[in-house]
Design a protein around this nucleic acid. Sequence first.
DNA 1: GCCAACGTTGGC
DNA 2: GCCAACGTTGGC
Length: 154
Amino acid sequence: MAARAWLMKSEPDVFGIAALRRKRREHWDGVRNFQARNFMREMAIGDDVLFYHSNARPPGVAGLARVCKTAYPDTTSFDPSSPYHDPRSTPDQPRWFMVDVEFVEEFARFLPLDGLREVPALADMILFRRSRLSVQPVSRAEFQTICRLGRARR
DNA sequence: GCCAACGTTGGC
DNA sequence: GCCAACGTTGGC
């Protein structure tokens, strides 16, 4: 089956694309929203990920990652000392999951949210309608459009 | 730091 | 099962 494409948000102050480049791969923990979790459980190895910087100035797409491990329990949910702790999640009955992603590239041009809004081919992106959803599917056409913009020379 | 949007919780 | 209260996300 063809690889799907996703957009995943992270605050660059906490974990940005530069940190992923350094670490090469990392688990994507801390997702505490059911819809976002369900999307992560649909991910397959090799799926493309747009790495989005949220709560940044400006917010926008910073580059690309790739899914390298499918969903498994998010152990931070079991850890009382973690900010992501959730007492309703246990090793026997995990409520929250994470995937692993590997670094692919940092775009030559960071793509700010307000610029993406202006692109007609991206008008239907979930990003603009469901601003709080931190993991979301992206169509192949949207993915390709964003890659082209991110790699373009001035 | 503010606040709108919206997901979640819990009383009924 | 409804919905008000509450908490969080994330743009600005």
